[in-house]
Amino acid sequence: MKRYSLMAGAAFCLAVTGMAIWTAAADPVDETLEIDGVPMTTRAPAPEGHPFDEVLSGWLFREAETRATQEDTFENPGMIAVEEGAEIWNTVEGSAGKSCASCHDDAAVSMKDVGAHYPKWDADSGKPLNVELRIDKCRVENMGAEAYKFDQPEQKALTAFIKHQSLGTPVELDLSEGDMQTWWDRGKETYYTRTGQLNMACATCHEGAMGHYIRADHLSQGQVNGFPTYRFNTGGLVSLHNRFRGCIRDTRAEFPAAFSDELMALEVYVTWRGTGLSVETPAVRQ
C-alpha cells in the first residue's frame, strides 16, 4: 500500500524505458518508547477502512537525540509549558471568579484520559470541539472570561496540560455522536485534495511518501497524538492547527483559519487515522 504512487510511476518508467527498479527507503526505527517508565503504544493495528495496516507514531521517525529527549519528562522542554498549564488551571479569571479547578478540581483525576477522545461532538454548536475550543467554551460560558486568541501561549500551555493527563492512553474517537461521521467524511476529502502551486495533498506526503526523506525531513504518517508538540527549531510548543496550516502553506496554497470548519473536519479525520496510538503530549520534534 505504502508508496503506491511511486511504485506505479516507477513501474511505468520500467515499462517504457527499462530503467532499474528504484527502491530507496528510510524506515521508521524498530524501537519502543517509554516515558518515565510508562510504555507508549507507538505502533497499533489500523482501524478498519484505513489505508495502512499499521499506524505509527511520529516518534519513530525522529533522530535518536530527539527521541531520547522525549523519553524523560525532566529532559523534555515541552514540560515547562505543561507546568505553566497547571498554573493556569488553578488561576481565577473572568467575571464569575472561577478557575478551571473551581469546577474540575484535580486535573489528574477529572481530566485523566479526556484528551485522548477529542475532538468530541458539541450539540450546542452542532460541531465538533477540540480541546482548545472546549477550553474557550468553558472560559466564555462558565468563567465569564474571553476566548483565547489562536496560539496565545496560555492556549497552548493549557491544551498541553490537559492532553498530558492522557499520556499513554490510546487515541479513540466516538464517531457515532452527533454528525461526527459527516465531519470525518469532509476531513477525508480535504486530506486527499491537492492544493497549491505544488499540487500536493496530505496523502501525497504522509501516505504516498511516508518513510522517505523529503530533503532533510523524514516523512511520518503525520499523526496528531503528540500535539501540542515541542519544537527545538522554534523553541516552543506548536499547536496542531499551526502544523496543519504550515503543511498546507508548504504546498504554496492559501491556508484556512485555525479552528475553521475545514480544519476541524481535518482534525477529526486525521485524529481517527491515529486510532490506537498513545497520547504523547508534549512530543518532541526537531
Binding site: T195, G196, L198, R249, A253
Partner: peptide, 9 residues
Amino acid sequence: VGKNVREDL
C-alpha cells in the same frame, strides 16, 4: 495546479 493557490502565485 492544486486548489487555493497562494494569491500571489
